[in-house]
Design a protein around this nucleic acid. Structure first.
Length: 252
DNA sequence: ATGGCGCGGGGTCCGCGA
């Protein structure tokens, strides 16, 4: 089973890239963020996949597409969070949570909203037994966890994505038994999944690691490999997303 | 292409992203 997380920065602009990604890497489950489209206008990306779409006009939006049957689905948290940033699905015995976390800001209203979003997510996780269940959280967390996750620690220290409270949120997932599979496989390496369009950052390898695949220990038993597809970000045409697709394979 | 932003809405710019 191959699962991919990819912040597409508009699915309509990235349709060809997404379709090639699915074919070239034999993706079974694709979790997308920033689809930037209403559900009714979401394009057909693959005739063998069914999709759960949680979109809106212009901004944000997530979608989870699968070649396997989708046994359970839930788009959005209960209650107040109106922006489409969360999809839960149960696929092939794996509880899959696809998130697009708010960016936040440096301790303003948007920062509070980001904290609120993660509080809702941890509340949702209470329904699982994280010691026994196969749970996977993937997506754009908008958090750069450690110094290895930013291209320049001096620049990013004290900036949004790399604030102490944000680092603590990522640590809290690990404290709850989740394994950060990119970091597990590359413990000492700077690995990035986002390169700002501005400043030709990708050509200087000046990036951030904002996208994660977190899995419980029970699921990690079946982990085979992980690929961070930086080369897709480096191509000129068609225009890539500013984020990099990440693919994990499991023996399931 | 050694580059220096791209997207959507509804416009010939603006807000947003991180």
């Amino acid at each position: 089973m191959k699962i991919c997380t990819f912040n597409v920065n508009s699915i309509r602009s990235r349709l060809e890239i997404v379709q090639n990604l699915i074919d070239d890497y034999s993706i079974d489950i694709l979790c997308m963020q920033e689809i930037k489209v209403e559900n009714k206008d979401f394009p057909l990306i693959n005739s063998n996949m069914q999709c759960v779409i949680h979109g809106q006009k212009k901004l944000h939006g997530v979608a989870t597409c699968s070649t396997y049957p989708i046994d359970e689905k839930k788009a959005g948290f209960e209650g107040e969070l109106s922006e489409p940033r969360f999809i839960y699905t149960l696929i092939n015995g794996v509880h899959i949570i696809n998130i697009y976390a708010p960016l936040g800001d440096n301790y303003g209203e948007k920062f509070e909203y980001k904290i609120y979003f993660y509080n809702k997510l941890f509340e949702f996780l209470k329904r699982f037994d994280l010691k026994k269940d196969k749970v996977l959280i993937c997506g754009d967390f908008n958090i750069s966890h450690t110094a290895l996750d930013v291209w320049d620690e001096e620049i990013w220290d004290g900036e949004v994505t790399h604030l102490p409270e944000e680092k603590a949120i990522l640590s809290k997932f690990l404290d709850n038994g989740f394994i950060d599979v990119i970091r597990k496989e590359h413990p000492d390496e700077k690995i990035f999944t986002f390169y700002d369009y501005r400043g030709a950052k990708v050509y200087k390898n000046e990036g951030l690691r904002l996208d994660y695949i977190l899995v419980t220990k029970e699921l990690f038993k079946y982990f085979k490999n992980i690929e961070v597809l930086t080369q897709i970000r480096r191509k000129r045409k068609p225009t890539p997303s500013d984020h990099v697709p990440v693919v994990a394979e499991f023996d399931l």
